[in-house]
């Protein structure tokens, strides 16, 4: 089991009202599995993914990533750097850095030696071999999102967390991302947790969940 979630709860205080966004959420993810989650807007998908990605704290519950209980981890930044890759609805590339530099950020944080040959192969795999030295603003939306996926997987993370990764793309690019995720899942044994409104991408999940009224239910 690469990820194990037990009895996760999260409340937000909104003025005097108490929002129970997540109630007693439990589920497991195996290595190499694609998990997709859908649910109405405001149901808490982004909140759940933030907590799984250690960007936010749960009120209660346990999360074990790669046999590490994250409640006990001191340096969450390091854990995130090595174990978790994020793809957001927006590409969130740093516009002052070249695509190559953007992709290499996680490696540079970890002060790793950089193997130029491998980087070129990666860009070729993503069909962006000619754009390594370009800046994000020179690229189309679909291309930028592909670079964001590259950045998410560069450290070969235990889990790729994608929050509406196609929410901002046209049909053609949605298909490209879906194909890419499948390919990465098969070739690299990467594990995905994807929250989406898009039925097409929802369907690629080996396990599919619906999040509604704070409950996560397997379909």
């Amino acid at each position: 089991m690469i990820l194990s979630v037990k009895n996760l709860s999260k409340n937000f205080r909104d003025g005097k009202k108490n929002l129970n966004v997540l109630q007693d959420v439990s589920f497991d993810v195996k290595k190499g599995e694609i998990v997709t989650i859908k649910g109405p807007s405001g149901s808490g998908k982004s909140t759940l993914l933030s907590i799984l990605g250690t960007l936010d704290d749960a009120d209660s519950g346990k999360i074990v990533i790669n046999s590490t209980l994250i409640n006990e981890v001191k340096d969450l930044n390091k854990l995130r750097n090595l174990n978790i890759g994020f793809v957001f609805q927006f590409h969130n590339l740093i516009s002052e850095l070249t695509l190559e530099e953007n992709v290499l950020i996680p490696k540079m944080i970890n002060k790793e030696e950089i193997d130029n040959q491998k980087i070129e192969e990666l860009f070729t795999f993503f069909d962006l071999q000619d754009r390594m030295k370009s800046f994000p603003n020179d690229l189309s939306g679909g291309e930028k999102q592909r670079v964001a996926v590259m950045r998410a997987i560069i450290n070969n993370p235990s889990i790729v967390i994608a929050d509406e990764p196609t929410g901002n793309l046209d049909k053609e690019n949605v298909l490209k991302i879906i194909a890419l995720f499948k390919k990465l899942n098969i070739n690299n044994k990467l594990t995905f947790i994807i929250a989406t409104h898009d039925d097409q991408i929802f369907e690629i999940g080996h396990s599919k969940y619906n999040l509604e009224s704070g409950k996560l239910i397997k379909i």
Binding site: K78, N81, L82, F86, I94, P106, I109
Partner: peptide, 15 residues
Amino acid sequence: KDLAVLMSLGVNKSG
């Protein structure tokens, strides 16, 4: 936003 993204990638606050 860039700073938030850097943090999500593993840069800590002193970074």
